[in-house]
Write a protein that binds this DNA or RNA. Structure first.
Length: 120
DNA sequence: CACGTGACCGATG
DNA sequence: TCATCGGCCACGT
């Protein structure tokens, strides 16, 4: 009897998280933790990876714009997904070197800093 | 119910 | 930069 409620909760979580991912602007990136917080689940970064992994790949979603907090790609190196993520990021002008993106230049907080402090 | 695993993170050494 | 640790927690076994 609880199953339905659980499924609903899961669906809600996924929706909020996927929405947050979808909100990342083209050419920018965000960390799993940042997405978790934005979706309303602070401290639960692992949840994002799980949801993205479960999401149907046919879904048009900028999942490739989600990286680890240090800028490295979260997917294990050498996998198809890893290569795909590199490809997609480069395709939209994001610098990827050795499976890593300079968050200082492409992270969302950089936009905030620039807007608030008029940097760059 | 216990345990291992993982597309995580921040602090610490 | 790398290694470890404690925290986080859904899932499969």
């Amino acid at each position: 009897m609880n199953d339905e409620t659980d499924d609903e909760a899961r669906a809600l979580r996924a929706r909020r998280i996927l929405d947050a991912v979808a909100a990342i602007p083209r050419g920018r990136v965000a960390s799993y933790g940042a997405i978790a917080a934005r979706a309303g689940y602070p401290g639960r970064a692992r949840l994002i990876g799980r949801v993205l992994g479960d999401a149907p790949d046919r879904m048009a979603l900028p999942w490739h714009r989600v990286l680890r907090a240090d800028g490295r790609i979260g997917i294990p190196a050498g996998t198809q997904g890893f290569r795909e993520q590199c490809r997609r990021l480069k395709a939209e002008g994001v610098t990827v070197k050795d499976g890593r993106v300079p968050m200082s230049a492409f992270g969302l907080d950089h936009d905030l800093d620039r807007a608030i402090w008029s940097w760059g």
